[in-house]
Design a protein around this nucleic acid. Structure first.
Length: 429
RNA sequence: GGAGAGGUGGCAGAGUGGCCGAUUGCGUCACCUUGCUAAGGUGAUGUACCGGAAACGGUACCGGGGGUUCGAAUCCCCCCCUCUCCGCCA
């Protein structure tokens, strides 16, 4: 949610922001919101005055004698009818305004590149040399199925497409990367969190996934609950409705959770393998801090570095891209994606997504803090980034570290999590 | 699933129809006093919105939504949440 004042003072910037995100419908919400706001403001002074009159006259009544009382009472009843009509109108306008406001996207920062979709994201930096295999490397699913680590058919039979079963050492590797990610972040001062996976609409709305993301979300209609697509939702919502003290900030959380996505509208896209699946595990970093743009940007770099350090420890080549306007979501002000080299795709594939929101989520979540020394109540700033999402990260791990015989070398960082072994798998090719 | 008790400001906790935007305590801030790891005194201290250059004035908000009433934190209805007891259960 944006500040209504920003909308009034600089509607062009907000409208241009929505257009930069390639969301013309949402840009239209700016004008709708302003029109409703104008109508509301036109009636408010009159409404407030009427209420004031009504209130004062009512108070006086308590002190009046029976005769005068009758006269005032009659007058009051008249006013009441008039007031009720106005209040009905006010209520409607406020509801409409709120609906439009919740559609208006966060304004992308100046450092967000222009562009229509992910093909126009701009590379910021690159790390690691892409390995020359000297032959066609195997895809992760070829290695995984040959090793008996992966089964898509049985998964599809019981759960539908875009599902998988991990077995044996791959299941252990899956757990190892997640555990490594949690340990890394805990060592850097983050607090581990195990959050709810089923949340109310308010949490989806508060983090900006609703309205708009309903089609991507599994919903338990009976209970009015939603399966999270990322632990960003419950973790950012943790302090929703609270008034934090400035010296409690920043809050730095690292959550490991299952994530669920319907992937509606992606039929025929990334159908093979572990890239696009309905259910996965993710370790997510979330920061809640004071309303300071420079600090948000610093955090943004820090959480990117956390993810990059992990990829470097995994010895996986990656690049960081600045996500362009057209590929940016509704609530983000700026986003970096980290893409890891995936030989089977012959390209970098998205494995991480680091976003900063400023106070956009905090306003929706009613997430505030009080400034030190008796200062004002302020909306917090929020950020988040993937540390690791698996099984997607298993794609580059298997493919980049595969050996000729189909076994997979383990980077030293992961060995302690797999009994000290230097590789997994037997010769299969 | 059944029975009961509750949800009030940063926190604790009063308030059962008008004198309540809300006693009081704690916390916080300012000033004063005094000094010896401290204490005491005085005052200020919610959020949002509207009008205003500002001072300030006004309105709304006592879990959420409806209703009764001239008037609701207070009465009625629905929903949500928390706690206790019983049942069931990984």
């Amino acid at each position: 949610m944006l500040d209504l004042k920003l909308l009034r003072e600089n509607p062009d910037a907000v409208r241009a922001g929505a257009m930069k995100k390639r969301m013309p419908d949402r840009a239209a919400a700016v004008d709708k919101a302003l029109a409703i706001d104008a109508e509301l403001r036109a009636m408010l002074p009159k409404l407030d005055a009427m209420r004031s009159e009504q209130k004062n006259a009512g108070k006086e009544m308590g002190k009046l004698g029976p005769a005068e009382r009758e006269a005032v009472l009659a007058k009051q009843k008249e006013r009441k009818v008039e007031l009720q009509a106005l209040e009905e109108k006010e209520k409607q306008l406020r509801a409409d305004l709120d609906a439009q406001m919740s559609l208006i996207p966060n304004v992308p920062d100046a450092d967000v590149p222009e562009g229509k979709d992910d093909t126009e994201n701009v590379e910021v930096r690159r790390w690691g040399a892409v390995r020359d295999f000297g032959c066609q490397p195997k895809a992760h699913y070829e290695i995984g199925e040959a090793q008996g680590w992966l089964d898509f058919n049985r998964a599809a039979a019981m759960a539908g497409s875009r599902n998988y079963v991990l077995f044996g050492d791959l299941a252990l590797l899956h757990d190892a990367v997640l555990r490594y990610a949690v340990d890394l972040l805990v060592a850097r001062g983050f607090t581990a969190v195990d959050p709810p996976l089923l949340v109310r609409d308010a949490a989806m709305y508060g983090t900006g996934f609703f309205p708009g993301g309903e089609e991507q979300t599994y919903r338990c209609e009976k209970d009015g609950l939603n399966l999270i697509g990322t632990s960003e939702v419950p973790v950012t919502s943790l302090h929703g409705g609270e008034m934090l003290a400035e010296d409690q900030l920043p809050k730095k959380y690292v959550a490991r959770s299952a994530c669920f996505r319907r992937e509606a509208g992606t039929y025929g896209k990334d159908t093979r393998g572990l890239y696009r699946v309905h259910q996965f595990q993710k370790v997510e970093q979330v920061i809640v801090d004071v309303a300071d743009k420079a600090r948000s940007i610093q955090h943004h770099h820090d959480i990117c570095k956390n993810a990059e350090d992990m990829l470097q420890a995994f010895e996986l080549p990656y690049r960081v891209v600045a996500v362009c306007g057209g590929d940016l979501g509704v609530p983000q002000a700026m986003k970096y994606d980290i893409e890891t080299w995936m030989p089977s795709r012959g390209n970098y594939g998205e494995t991480h997504s680091a976003s900063r929101f400023y106070d956009y989520q905090a306003r929706r979540l009613d997430l505030r803090y009080r400034q030190k020394d008796g200062g004002k109540a302020m909306w917090c700033h929020t950020l988040n980034n993937t540390v690791v999402a698996s099984p997607r990260i298993l794609i580059p791990l298997l493919e980049n570290h595969q050996q000729k015989d189909g076994s997979v070398r383990l980077p030293p960082a992961l060995r302690p999590y797999l009994g000290g072994r230097e590789s997994i798998g037997k010769p299969v090719f």
